[in-house]
Structure formats: structure tokens, C-alpha cells
């Protein structure tokens, strides 16, 4: 791999939870030991069920939540412990698109002001005219006409608001775009438009994308590599091709099998093979492998030690000690 744009070393985000006045504080391990190298221009999908830590991980990278241990390394420099003022210039290169397109736009600002705001913070030397030009340019790039600048967010549909949110994130031409469930709140017919837009932007700007999503079909379409998380821990990390064609971790296999396909010849059988059980409480994760309580392949040894990511082949790592005995089933063509 070329020098990574972003590297995570044993990254941890633990939230202290007070159980009550007299009880000791405990930690909720939202992200618990993530190692990752993200190459420039790569689109990395981060997937898992609600509560797996995927949004917290994305926010920790942007330093929107405080990390509890490990390192975030940006362009070779560890940025842990940097003050807010020291981190601020980096934000120019790291931007985020949120799930709820309308709630993430200030209702009292015009679209022009919203999209220009990052420029006012990070590109203060631009003249008013230059700023306006940059705003109109990026709006055109996301498929919005110039005359939207004087209108307000409530005048737009969900898909258009998401385009505005993407324009705001892209106006600084960031190196890294973090997308936190960017199509989940959109209608089906609009999702494809936004997925295509992100693909175009990635290609045209050579941008790196971290794509946090529970929608595994969208991730397959858009991402080059995928990280599967469960209770804050990595389960599998592989190129998109390998993850979907030869999933190795029983959790990945269960997740893929649960995604419905709009084909009545296939879907009824798929329903029969759904992963059982529910996510255990993150306050009391199982010992050893955190997935073992839902795993059909679990044996006594799985309770003893937490498996680390191990290499299956180049570009494919799995955190399961039994992967050699488990067939790469659950593959979805």
C-alpha cells in the first residue's frame, strides 16, 4: 500500500457510564481496538448493526468525540492530544456528511450561506466574489442550479438537502469525506442518485471516502474495501470483492444473508437462514470473542480469548480463530 492518508492504531473510544451515585463508573467500549490503514483515493465501507460503533469510529477520526486510547495518524502525524486550535486546520481536509439531510442544515441560513460557511472558516483570504464563485461551482457539481443560493433548506426535498450537505462538505475540496449513513433517510428512487453522485465525486476529485452504513448493498456498489464491526471490535476487513464473494466471519455471513433481495425465487429461502439472537448489551459484552453468543460455530475456546484479525490471503483479514474450519458460505454471488 502507498503511504496511508489515515492510519488508526489500536483506536479506542470508551464512554464512562455512571450506574448511580454510589456505584463505580463502568466503561462502554464503543470502539475497542481498531487498527486500520486507509489509502488515498480509497472508499472504505464501515458496516455493522446499530450499536456496533461505526458512527463513533467515524466521529473519533474527525475528533468529534474524544478517544480513550490508541492513535489517529493523519498523513504520517499522530494527532492524538492535539488541541482544538491545532486540529482546526486539519478539518479543512476532513469533512463529514450526516444522515438526516434536513436536520444537519441550519434552517435560518440560506443555501449559499450554508455552503460558504466552511470557506469563511478555513479560506479567509478569499474575496466575496471568489467565495461566491466557489459555492456556485460546487453546487453545480452536485447537481443544483445557481439560483438555489438564496433559498432556505425547508424549500428542498430530502435528496436535494443531501446534495446541499455534500456541497458544504466538498467546497473545501477535502482529502477525506466521511459519510455517516448518507442515503438511509432518502427515498429509494433518490438513493441511487446520491450513490452515483458520490461515485462521480470520488472519481473526479480522487477523494478518500469513509462510508458508514448499515446498507450492505450500497456499500458493495460504492466501496473498495469493507470493515465489519461488532460491539466495537473488527470482525472482518477485506476488499469488497472478497468480502461479498467469500465472507469468512460467521457474523459477516449472517449480515449478508439478512439483506433482502427483490427476487421472489431467492428471498423466501434467504429468510430461513437469518442470523438469530440480538446484539448483547455493550455494557456486558461476552468474554472472548464478542460474537460467540450468536455464532453457530462457537466452541468453548471462543469464550477464552478474543481473536485478533488474522490474514486469510492478501487483502483479507478475519477475526475468527475457526475460519479455516468454516466454509466461505453465505456468499452472495
Amino acid at each position: 500500500m502507498t503511504d496511508p492518508l489515515l492510519e488508526l492504531r489500536d483506536l479506542r473510544v470508551w464512554f464512562p457510564i455512571g450506574d448511580g451515585l454510589f456505584r463505580a463508573k463502568r466503561n462502554l467500549r464503543a470502539v475497542d481496538g481498531i487498527d486500520l490503514r486507509v489509502a488515498p483515493g480509497e472508499a472504505l465501507g464501515i458496516v455493522g448493526e446499530s450499536g456496533c460503533g461505526k458512527s463513533t469510529l467515524a466521529r473519533a477520526i474527525l475528533r468529534l468525540v474524544r478517544t480513550s486510547g490508541g492513535q489517529v495518524v493523519w498523513l504520517g502525524k499522530p494527532i492524538e492530544g492535539w488541541s482544538t486550535s491545532r486540529v482546526r486546520p486539519l478539518r479543512r481536509d476532513m469533512q463529514i456528511v450526516f444522515q438526516d439531510p434536513l436536520a444537519s442544515l441550519d434552517p435560518r441560513m440560506t443555501v449559499g450561506e450554508i455552503v460558504a460557511e466552511p470557506l469563511r472558516v478555513h479560506a479567509r483570504d478569499l474575496s466575496r466574489a471568489e467565495r461566491r464563485e466557489r459555492v456556485i461551482d460546487i453546487l453545480a457539481r452536485v447537481g443544483l442550479p445557481a439560483d438555489v443560493v438564496n433559498r432556505y433548506p425547508h424549500e428542498f426535498s430530502g435528496g436535494q438537502c443531501q446534495r446541499i450537505g455534500i456541497a458544504r462538505a466538498m467546497v473545501l475540496r477535502p482529502k477525506l469525506l466521511v459519510c455517516d449513513e448518507p442515503v438511509s433517510a432518502l427515498d429509494v428512487s433518490i438513493q441511487a442518485q446520491i450513490v452515483n453522485l458520490l461515485q462521480d465525486l470520488k472519481r473526479d476529485f480522487g477523494m478518500t471516502i469513509l462510508f458508514v452504513s448499515h446498507n450492505l448493498a450500497v456499500v458493495r456498489r460504492l466501496c473498495d474495501r469493507v470493515l465489519v464491526l461488532y460491539l466495537g471490535k473488527p470482525m472482518e476487513l477485506a476488499s469488497t470483492d472478497l468480502l461479498y464473494s467469500q465472507p469468512r466471519h460467521p457474523y459477516t455471513q449472517g449480515l449478508l444473508a439478512a439483506v433482502p433481495v427483490p427476487d421472489p425465487d431467492l428471498q423466501p429461502q434467504r429468510l430461513g437462514g437469518a442470523l438469530g439472537g440480538e446484539l448483547p448489551s455493550p455494557m456486558a459484552p461476552p468474554s472472548g470473542c464478542v460474537f460467540r453468543t450468536r455464532c453457530a460455530h462457537a466452541v468453548a475456546a471462543c469464550a477464552a480469548a478474543a481473536p485478533r484479525l488474522q490474514s486469510v490471503e492478501t487483502g483479507h483479514e478475519v477475526a475468527c480463530d475457526r475460519w479455516r474450519e468454516i466454509s466461505a458460505s453465505g456468499a452472495v454471488a
Binding site: 438513493q191 452515483n196 461515485q199 462521480d200 450492505l216 448493498a217 458493495r220 456498489r221 449478508l256 427483490p262
Partner: peptide, 12 residues
């Protein structure tokens, strides 16, 4: 227009 989990396509 729906992306499908069993679709290997990567284009728009």
C-alpha cells in the same frame, strides 16, 4: 435503481 447485495456491478 436499487443496489442489490448480489449484484457485482460497480458502475453508476
Amino acid at each position: 435503481s436499487m443496489p442489490r447485495i448480489d449484484d457485482t456491478g460497480t458502475g453508476p
